[in-house]
Design a protein around this nucleic acid. Sequence first.
RNA 1: GCCAACGUAGCUCAACUGGUAGAGCGGCUGACUUGUAAUCAGCAGGUUGGGGGUUCGAGUCCCUUCGUUGGCUCCA
Length: 645
Amino acid sequence: MHWIIELPDGTIKEYDKPVSPADVAADISSGLLKKAIGAEVNGNLWDLKRVMPEKAKLRLILEKDYEAPIFYRHTFSHILAQAVMRIYGEKNVKLAIGPVIEDGFYYDFDLGDVKLSEDDLPKIEAEMAKIVKENLPVERFELTKDEAINFMKEKGQLYKVELVEELDDEKISFYKQGDFVDLCKGPHMPSTGRIKHFKLLSVSGAYWRGDEKNKMLQRVYGTAFAKKSELEKHLAMLEEAKKRDHRKIGPQLGLFSFSYEYAPGMPLFHPKGTVVLNELMKFSREMHIQDDYQEVITPLIMNIDLWKKSGHWDHYRDNMYFTEKEGQEYAVKPMNCPGHILIYKSGSVSYKDLPMKFFEFGKVHRYERSGVLHGLFRVRGFLQDDAHIYCTREQIKEQIKGVISFVDRIYSPFGFEYRAELSTRPEDFMGEIEIWDIATDALRDALESTKLRYKVNEGDGAFYGPKIDFHVRDSLGREWQCATIQLDFLMPERFNMTYIGPDNQEYRPVMIHRAIYGSLERFFGILIEHYAGAFPTWLAPIQVKVIPIADRHNEYAEEVAAELRNAGIRIEVDTRTKSTNYKIRDAQMQKVPYMAIVGDKEIDAKTVSIRLRTGENLYGIKLNSFIARLTEEINKRQKNSIFKS
RNA sequence: GCCAACGUAGCUCAACUGGUAGAGCGGCUGACUUGUAAUCAGCAGGUUGGGGGUUCGAGUCCCUUCGUUGGCUCCA
């Protein structure tokens, strides 16, 4: 027996006894062993102390590597389970699953009659801290399937029995730390004390296997990081996110409210919120016109037969609202595509008309279960910046490329980073494989031809076509799915859409669905949190607050206001008999970008003093110069103040 | 819909183990006429989400209902 281990730099290490990554690390340097938390062996994540195959390519994974959290967060989920078992008694705890998730981990438990609440978290955390301190070695062992089933049956772990029964592997792996054993494919860190920084975040209900027909389990969420400073940074981010919550800031800034009683899941936009939405639409409209879209408006309510034809009745009925008059049944539209198709089909279409690009700010209604509603992020009625591109197969690639660059232009004033995901043909697809291949290649080629980062979700496309989704990253590093580009081969089929080719024969067009903001409501919510309510000037509901120092300055303040208003700038004048400090504070809290402060000096010199919401002051500015520069900032939709250089 | 927590003035939050519902901010009125993040004083504001029960007595305990929040997608 001879172990030949290749390191990433090409170095070959040879041993005549079985070696684990830890052995090799120790062989290189004791410092390296200290920093290593796991390994990658022949492309698989591997425990530090697990013996490697005789021929292996080894890469050690250090605390700072991006795979490291997979190791320690997974171990923390086991530590969590172990702590819960110690506290509530091994017999009373049935373990379900405990995976690593983005930024943390969770574990699902069946605790019988015991109900966990957030108040129990400190107690569980304390027990976890003890387990960390005990620094128990984490050991891997394997059983055959039968052994594994019996083993889990003996322990009364029925959920685990169910999981094992579904596995096909010959050998089933388990991990043990002290008195705790769990079915697990790993990998884990070498001992429970290797990384110490964790925090439990919340408890909630979760169905066994995510299916509401199954028993509701209790889920505990937690997070862990290699460094204390990283954990603290993450917790601070969660705090900041809480402060920026659009459900809180929105009403505070007078943007919108909800009438939970009368219109659940449907926001009421107040005057200031409406200004922001209108600016978003104005910008979008300008861009669409530049990109050769034609705007349309289609009915909110249409006969049910249309929805039967489109397939929505069969596939989407549970999410639709219905109404009835004169014995006719109607549905409130959940999507805009059928309406656009009716326009397409209202006359005959030549290949010369393609691509045809219809765009609509389409209000759609979708029933969502009450429990999933969430501020502006998940609503029952929303406005989509929806468009459908009808084109030939040959035009697909060029059109997709066009949309991708369009997405970039729409996102650019907001300062979002974003990335894409390509979802390919699922198992239960519709249509011909060759079209799928053409379309998928077109999407892939289009993505490749841009510098955009993207990942592929194999088999994750809709049954009617492949798609590209865009995820924007906000100022707190959170990601949100907004834009989507979907190819659709089904709808043109169902509606028997055609165009006349150069040979005077009928052909089937391809349909591309796409939205850029996605939902205006949701995008608005994301922007509120992204900017923490401090919108760039072009979006700000009030762009300038005119503040007279004392009553005798009101008249001049009104003159200043009139000139600003004439220049198309959104203003308010604060003539309340309050102190200057008070009025400035109020404007600051409302996140107004500019305050124009006027008193005796300004009246004498015919100027204004400008305070930016960031606190800087510019004294003695000529009004026309202020208006000119501000107008430029607004017209260019600048991210930052033009008055800061 | 399901599990858990929560629901007191417009907002933020008090009210010991059941014993007279309170404060700050905001609002209104008055005084002050203010120079870059809260001037002072007074007044109003509540069926403690709704309904029912236990009790001499319920914001507090129990039941029920409505709503909000965290989750219910991440698969050993």
